[in-house]
Design a protein around this nucleic acid. Structure first.
Lengths: 351, 351
DNA sequence: GTGAAAGCGCTAACAA
DNA sequence: TTGTTAGCGCTTTCAC
């Protein structure tokens, strides 16, 4: 960077040695107030920008970042998140970053706790976590704070915590979007159904917010529309009969499912050959994609686990390597997927 | 990166000096086939990854990248692209990257040509361009090829060129999305109008594709729907009377505008207090945003100039600094904006 | 065809 | 309180 001013130039201008300049830059003390002021003034004047490559070269300890998230083989949503992690990591593996992944089961608190204990033991340089178990997550978060390990949360944030950054989506607003889409495309007369799946209730703090968002839109924009909220059993046998009953006893024209399990309802509609009920749900998992292509799912809201994960990695790495500052919150745009823009989402890319 | 193997380790293992290893790595010749093979074998075995910081530190020439795009003050769409450039540049200014921006007027070919001559004269390390003038753009592209200057194109690609990468959207498919949205939300009976604005025709190769995409959806999904294509004059006085006539003589229930100038139609509907015509168009420019909030624009397709620009910068910089390889094409997802997810797009972020 | 050595900008240990 | 210096991993020049 010929022409660029460095620490040596500052030293020369101030008539001191580079060691002194360095001490000022890093506030390591042992400098008289007078020289410090002089140096700081010069730094400001010449708009000094440190050479990050040199900096990183000399402090070349390896950096270990730890990841705690649901097991990718348990669920396609989390598989996508994991792919984002791996992809984003490629960019940092040249820079001495090592990832230590821990996976827990969405259906077993204990696996989370076990992993948390391990993590605290190794005191990583940084932690990225998707804390679906709020209490256990808070405990880990507190421990990390004590050990001054920077924490990034994605997908779910622990209430009243202040991680380095939170990366996720606005569940309440996404509920409003779902309601809007049903409202704009459904028959004027008839009810909407909001469906949750049982298993999710334990670990999805988002579900309440989604429901509230949905109902908030309805009461604002079309209060005359009746909405039925129902929790479906997790077993195919049971939720099918619940759905049959629901549709038999009500004039349902639109259905909103609060998770990626929307394909269960889509498959049901397909089996029953019901085409005139609009269906909205979450996430580009393969069964949802198929059903959308076939026309049984009308809208998918994309929570983009892949990009959430990518951004988590790159934010933490840039913070650890370059001390880059980070927004305290990244809420992703609420992406609406239809049959026609669906394919364009598979080419989605980041730098 | 304690524990990481470097050029020194390779040299030791091969029983040669680091100079020889370096010659092998960079294929600079003057190495016997025998030692070369040995070294290459070792490199493979230990999976050698060069330390990019060291590499960059030692070759610290400043890199100048040149940008050629429409003047941001002429148009809000391009203003957003420029913001993306500036924002993305921040991440690279620590690394000796300098940007030399050139702006041309969308309404004046000559400004493009003048800038192109200048650019060739300075032979930058790389060029990013949004070549709305295809012929002139091709000429510049050829010149760059001769001078082996890597070129990235965004927004518009010059037909049959092979830049380092193209970053943009799929216009044809976005037309299909627009048709889908109108189809799903409009009254069963009535016509659709496809409107272009005059001034754009000269410099928007996308417009034909958009129209074709729209019509392709209609003929696939609802061929009984009649569509009227019309080119509107650029003067308010003229296009208003054209619109009045259009709506008076036809039962129009949905309108598709092929550019960001959709707000002109939105304002017209607002003035005429027409609420039952669906309106779809492009880009999150401020007038469109206002009209969407007020309910006069129903759907906006976001071409995301900001992210296109950001990605252009970061791709070129990573290529020049780290020799990072790049996809030859990045087509963005076709983002659908409604009143309810609109606000979430202003928090959009990248790493 | 090969090796030795200087030096990129910076940090940190140590000497003064 | 300040200055000096070794060295991070790599490229490149120059001498052999």
């Amino acid at each position: 960077m010929s022409g660029r001013k460095g620490i040596k130039d500052i030293a020369m201008l101030a008539g001191v040695s580079i060691g002194t300049v360095d001490r000022v830059i890093h506030k390591r003390g042992r400098v008289s107030a007078e020289t410090r002021n002089k140096i700081e003034e010069i730094i400001r004047q010449i708009d000094y920008k440190p050479n990050l490559h040199a900096r990183r070269l000399v402090k070349n300890k390896k950096i270990t970042v730890t990841l705690l998230m649901p097991n990718p083989i348990e669920d396609e949503y989390w598989k996508q998140a994991w792919e984002g992690i791996e992809c984003s990591l490629l960019k940092f593996e040249h820079q001495g970053i090592y990832l230590e992944p821990y996976f827990y089961s969405l259906y077993d608190k204990v696996t989370f706790e076990t992993a948390a204990i391990e993590i605290i033991k190794v005191t990583p340089s940084g932690l990225i976590m998707a804390p679906n178990f709020l209490e256990e997550g808070r405990h880990l978060y507190d421990k990390c704070n004590e050990a001054s390990i920077p924490v990034i949360m994605f997908d779910t944030i622990i209430p009243k915590s202040s991680p380095l950054t939170f990366i996720g989506t606005d569940s309440f607003q996404s509920g409003k979007v779902a309601a809007e889409l049903l409202h704009l495309t459904s028959a004027q007369i008839g009810k909407f159904a909001i469906l949750h799946f049982d298993e999710e209730l334990i670990n999805s703090p988002h579900m309440q917010e989604k429901e509230q968002g949905f109902l908030s839109y309805i009461s604002d924009e079309c209060p005359e529309r009746e909405c039925i909220v129902e929790v479906l059993n997790n077993e195919k046998h049971f939720y099918q009969s619940q759905l049959i009953e629901l549709l038999a006893n009500n004039d349902i024209v639109g259905i909103y499912v609060s998770t990626s399990k929307i394909y269960r309802v889509g498959q049901f509609l397909e089996n029953q050959n019901i085409k005139d009920v609009r269906l909205v749900g979450y996430d580009l998992v393969s069964k949802n994609i198929d059903l959308m292509r076939q026309g049984y799912i009308d809208f998918i809201i994309n929570q983009n686990p892949r990009r959430q994960a990518e951004l988590s990695i790159s934010n933490l790495c840039n913070y650890l390597i370059y001390n880059q500052d980070i927004n305290s919150k990244y809420l992703f745009p609420i992406e609406i997927i239809t049959k026609m823009n669906l394919e364009s989402y598979f080419k989605d890319v980041l730098d």
